[in-house]
Write a protein that binds this DNA or RNA. Structure first.
Lengths: 167, 167
DNA sequence: TCCAATTTAATCGCATGCGATATATATAAG
DNA sequence: CTTATATATATCGCATGCGATTAAATTGGA
């Protein structure tokens, strides 16, 4: 969260300032991302409801389609989540029949997760295809926004990691 | 969520296809936004922990700084949330002393919410100032990404709204 | 070999989001 | 005036995220 550097100086005092116009929510990049994420979830909802999936479950299936026999940890690296969040989600996907979970025989600590044929079939229908239009972005803009947001994410994670290592 | 149209055709069969390279998570705009939102939350966490605030509570305070005596509904329009989510958050902020909540005398259905002087003081310290660097974006890029993501959000919400009205 | 440190998942508690519903107030119809 | 409808907020249940802890398996060192 940040105000632009320019506004910052003109915005400092405010012990009594009734003028907070420089602090509008719309100026915050973090809020843009926060609310865009809510908007994506709402756009997906009607489609995923029909499939009995949640947004996160759907993303997990996509991540699982990248490779068979992934461990929970590997999946977590892709999704930026850990087992505390993933385990309950994967159990639900298993119960729904989209995923198979089993301990690795060579290392019983790990759990290997793989899409079932039902899971693969579901993704092959490309349920979210209709949402392309909803973004209002042409192919070029789409790729551009996708790339800037990804870079932003990686910058934030790198900075956060650096901070926590310093302490 | 979408694969690029080009890849889609080359990706259809997969009854046995081990090649799902066209379906990589990194190709999904929704995942970029999803994970960037997680990254923002993690970047804010150490700062907000010191203040005893959560990320959403912090955003709510920012929204409240835009005007005094906002109703829950008005705040919800800014944050894209409704009373089911906001009420518990506002009660916590009230308990923490950053916010005042009181029924509107003229219309007892509404609740007016206003920052206390403690709440205003907290925002005046600009706790998230240090995160500007973490974005890795210069002022120009910052504004540009902010604007594209906001437009994306508004497109999605408009499309979602249109769909739900048609049904 | 034996045992302490490490690694991987899973569990638990708390704070959102959100659909569905409940409650209280205000407004409109008759 | 009385009642039906509409509106604003709050409550409840479920599904994430996430810090803290636990449990089980593996690894490394004495």
């Amino acid at each position: 969260m940040t105000t632009s550097p320019k506004m910052k100086t003109s915005n400092l005092p405010s012990t009594k300032s009734p003028d907070n116009s420089g602090r509008k929510l719309s100026k915050f990049l973090c809020f843009a991302v926060y609310s865009a994420n809510l908007a994506f979830g709402r756009a997906y909802k009607p489609i995923l409801d029909e499939l009995g999936l949640t947004y996160t479950q759907y993303i997990a299936l996509q991540a699982l389609s990248e490779g068979d026999e992934q461990t929970v940890g590997e999946l977590g690296e892709k999704m930026f989540l850990e087992s505390n969040t993933l385990t309950p989600i994967l159990k639900k996907l298993e119960l729904a029949g989209y995923v198979r979970r089993q301990r690795d025989a060579a290392d019983e600590r790990q759990v290997r997760v793989t899409l079932t044929s039902a899971g693969r079939r579901l993704l092959d229908t490309d349920p979210a295809a209709s949402l392309m239009d909803a973004t209002g972005l042409g192919g070029a803009d789409f790729a551009e926004v996708q790339e800037s947001v990804t870079r932003l994410r990686d910058n934030l994670l790198r900075a956060t990691r650096a901070r926590s290592e310093k302490s």
